[in-house]
Design a protein around this nucleic acid. Structure first.
Lengths: 344, 344
DNA sequence: CCGCCGGATGTTGACGTCAACATCGACCGG
DNA sequence: CCGGTCGATGTTGACGTCAACATCCGGCGG
């Protein structure tokens, strides 16, 4: 519970309400009334106060207001690797939606997705400096182990937290089914899978759904190939997959890895989609301009972000308790040129 | 100066220091001592207080501390289009560096890069809820017009603010010279430029430097072609450029546009680099895995982010006044396979 | 002409924390 | 055995704001 505080920033705080009051020749309460927009102030007085504010460059002290109101007008966001496509787009949407509702966003980027790190980040953020918490993709954290302060509204973008915290998640299951079925429909006997890291929940959902779909369709289930979301890892695994003549279709857990994979396949003389079909996941903006344009599963990160804020604000403002609510954001398959019927 | 505050979040604030004090049978000051890590508390007492904290789930009220200390331990970040590569990586680095120094980050994403929007965002953030402000790429904002509260430490990632605010910027000038010279060295008679939007300062710097370099080398200066940073715009402009037989080398203001451009060139039957050489800017992670791997100018966004925090904290902590300080972060040319000598 | 009423403005206290100062008690040296 | 001293703990007030209540004033009805 001990805690350090940055160097006491003494005295950089600007003029206070009292300074304005003195200059305007009114009481501080009148200044307060003007600054909160109360209507029972005589126009002439209001003018005088506004002029004084202007002259002094006054702006209300947020800390004092927060103390008084018990609310910061701020929501905390915990993300893992912020610069990654899905994360940054989700965060962008959260920031936008939050602003539209009059809230600012405090951001923490945890180094590792472990429960401990997330919990520590939550604690750091929480000390009442935020009104609620958005946790974006709490990878390995298992539902029970995620400790957030009591009474802190939380929303998680991870469907596994259903029953523990309200959640918003893309419909990865349907997206994966669509991708695999698309490849089977084209005539491929089975589909290989280039997965994300095993400590990622979305990666695991995609693996499980892919396997399930193949089993349900009575197809051979090839060994899972693992990448780490990066294009480089896709490239490396692609070099290996290229050597396997049985591979005719690969479903990749994200577009970056798919791009690396495609590149490796070409270098090994395997054409896409002539020799091997490739499907990605996410539909990042570049996907359409890769060669060949990538067939992929589109996720609406923007919608996820705004739904997260919706759900969080319902808890914050309306005191709703939503532990088991869950919003699923649809995904869809975007067919481009990286998939085709197998050769023979 | 009037201002609204989100619904008075009454009573969600947890137990206070007084509750802990009562439970532990000590005064609130002793609790305060324990929570700030003062050493003059008897171990047995400390234990009792910690136990009470644990039992009540106490955590210090950040608003009260902020009020007391006059500091929030928070820095504000204003970014324009957060999901864009450079922005998200810079923000990630800022968040990371800030955390290492014990600060959290409050994020605002402005819709338009206009001065007004940035100024409004600064005002929103500033109400003393932050100790300093990082403005990432204040596109059209001209130096004089950027109004931030008096005494608010500010740092800008835009070299044009030198003399107004401390700035950290990538060395775009050198990067551009390197790119253009590389193409000239390969034997191209001149270099076309696919620029970013005219309201972007970095885009304009690249345009100016490109033009200057061509003039200095006594080359023909082709008309500038404009995109909007997106791959799609690169694709669209690429279709036009492909029709011009004089085009043998294109310097693109970012990698996304370069990717779209390359795709369009291929579709029109122009090979890269055989028929046309292409250079990008940024070195985003996918660049290396495009086909062909893109020659590009690398910017170290991570370094920019941490330098921004350095510079800001020097102002916040040490009360330094740094209006005219400027840090230039080097860029370098990464030569891959998208550039070659012209055909004839 | 007096008292009442309502709108404008002022005064007080509380939000939670912590620094400064006050107090209390035990132990030590003379 | 007593005064002194120092470490542990308690008390007070202030940070800036705003709600609740108090006050003051002019105008209007009786």
């Amino acid at each position: 519970m001990t805690d350090t505080v940055p160097a006491p920033g003494r005295s950089r705080s600007g003029p206070s309400i009292a300074d304005v009051a003195q200059l305007a020749g009114v009481s501080s309460q009148t200044v307060s009334r003007v600054s909160t927009g109360a209507d029972n102030v005589r126009p002439a007085t209001r003018e005088r106060v506004l002029a004084a504010m202007e002259q002094l460059g006054y702006s209300p002290n947020h800390a004092a207001r927060a103390l008084r109101y018990g609310s910061f007008g701020t929501i905390g966001v915990i993300a893992h690797r912020l610069a990654r496509t899905g994360e940054s787009r989700t965060v962008e949407a959260v920031v936008e939606a939050a602003r539209a509702e009059g809230y600012t966003v405090s951001l923490v980027d945890v180094q590792s997705p472990s429960s401990d790190d997330v919990t520590a980040a939550a604690a750091r953020l929480s000390h009442q400096s935020i009104d609620g918490l958005v946790i974006i993709r709490a990878e390995t954290a298992t539902p029970a182990s995620l400790a957030v302060p009591p009474r802190m509204p939380v929303v998680v973008s991870d469907s596994r937290f259903v029953g523990h915290h309200p959640a918003v998640a893309a419909d990865q299951v349907t997206g994966t089914h669509l991708a695999v079925q698309h490849l089977l429909d084209l005539g491929h006997r089975t589909v290989h899978h280039l997965a994300g890291p095993a400590d990622s929940a979305p990666a695991e959902i995609r693996v499980d759904t892919w396997r399930e779909h193949l089993v349900g369709s009575a197809r051979v289930v090839p060994a899972v190939v693992r990448g780490d979301w990066s294009a480089r890892s896709g490239y490396e695994q692609g070099r290996l997959l290229a050597a396997d003549p049985d591979v005719t279709a690969v479903f990749c857990a994200n577009d970056e890895m798919a791009a690396g994979l495609v590149r490796a396949l070409y270098e090994q003389g395997r054409r896409v989609p002539d020799d091997i079909s490739v499907v990605g996941f996410d539909d990042i903006p570049l996907t359409e301009f890769l060669w060949p344009p990538l067939t992929t599963v589109q996720q609406d990160f923007h919608l996820i972000g705004s739904r997260l804020v919706d759900l969080l604000l319902r808890q914050i403002r309306d005191r709703e308790t939503l532990t088991d609510s869950r919003i699923v954001v649809p995904t869809r398959l975007v067919v481009r040129a990286s998939t085709a019927a197998p050769r023979a």
